[in-house]
């Protein structure tokens, strides 16, 4: 058990009358890539918010690398090693793309030159280098999502939380991103927890899948196994059309 990098134990979150996350547990091993899937409103983003400290869970605990980080602030979660993207992107619009990423890089170093170098590397890896000097507000939505990823990556997290960063990409671009993430994970041992409606990316990338529905975990396992699960098919296939829609 303690081999897991991130361990989520029975977390719950309720909004007024709505149980958005209901006693959910799962684990991400070091270097592992885990996908959190489920139809719209299943509670994926809320789960991310709980892990990243943006919301405090009503119950349960979150353990990162052996340390309990439950209920900490977002900046503390980040310093503990969690990098996250926002489904509704939040670029620093007036800053350049490079400066956006440098803000993230400053977590690891106070030196401007070092931060700049680290930011460049990440921009190149994610194919944003040509846009480096452009103000972030001029980016297209898919580019903004990539910027989210780059910024989070620049904080050198132990685990990266990706919330639908591939929405709106063309299939070839999706394949590129999938390759970039797989390489990253393999080369640096970075663990990734992602949510994605693009099944093509989920199946290609993840080692393990956790399925949420109405806030509850209904199934988890290897990708092929989950894809055959009758319960998953039932809750999911009804939404399949909506799910493939870009930007959903």
């Amino acid at each position: 058990m303690s081999a897991a990098l991130l361990e989520v134990r029975g977390i719950s979150k309720r909004f007024r009358g709505l149980q958005a996350v209901d006693n959910v547990s799962f684990a991400v091993p070091p270097g592992g890539i885990v996908a959190l899937i489920g139809p719209n409103g299943a509670g994926k983003t809320t789960t991310f918010n709980l892990i990243a400290g943006a919301m405090v869970p009503d119950g349960g605990s979150i353990v990162l690398d052996g340390a309990d980080i439950t209920g900490g602030r977002p900046d503390q979660a980040c310093r503990a090693g969690i990098g996250r993207t926002f489904q509704l992107v939040k670029p620093f619009g007036a800053l350049s793309v490079l400066q956006n990423v440098m803000v993230g890089a400053f977590k690891a170093t106070a030196d401007r030159v070092a931060a700049r170098r680290a930011a460049w590397e990440i921009l190149e890896r994610l194919g944003l280098a040509e846009k480096a000097e452009n103000p972030a507000k001029t980016l297209t939505l898919p580019e903004r999502k990539r910027l989210e990823t780059a910024r989070a990556l620049a904080t050198r997290p132990k685990i990266l939380l990706l919330d639908e960063v591939m929405a709106g990409l063309r299939p070839t671009e999706i394949d590129q991103m999938v390759r970039a993430f797989a390489d990253l994970s393999r080369e640096t041992g970075l663990a990734i927890l992602l949510t994605e409606h693009v099944m093509r990316a989920v199946m290609a990338l993840s080692h393990h899948i956790v399925v949420l529905h109405h806030g509850q975990k209904i199934c988890e396992g290897a990708p092929e196994q989950v894809a055959r699960d009758p319960q998953v098919l039932e809750c999911y296939l009804g939404h399949a059309q909506a799910a493939e829609r870009p930007g959903a």
Partner: peptide
């Protein structure tokens, strides 16, 4: 963006 800033530590 304060929230994004927080998420970056």
């Amino acid at each position: 963006d304060e929230e994004a800033a927080r998420a970056l530590g």
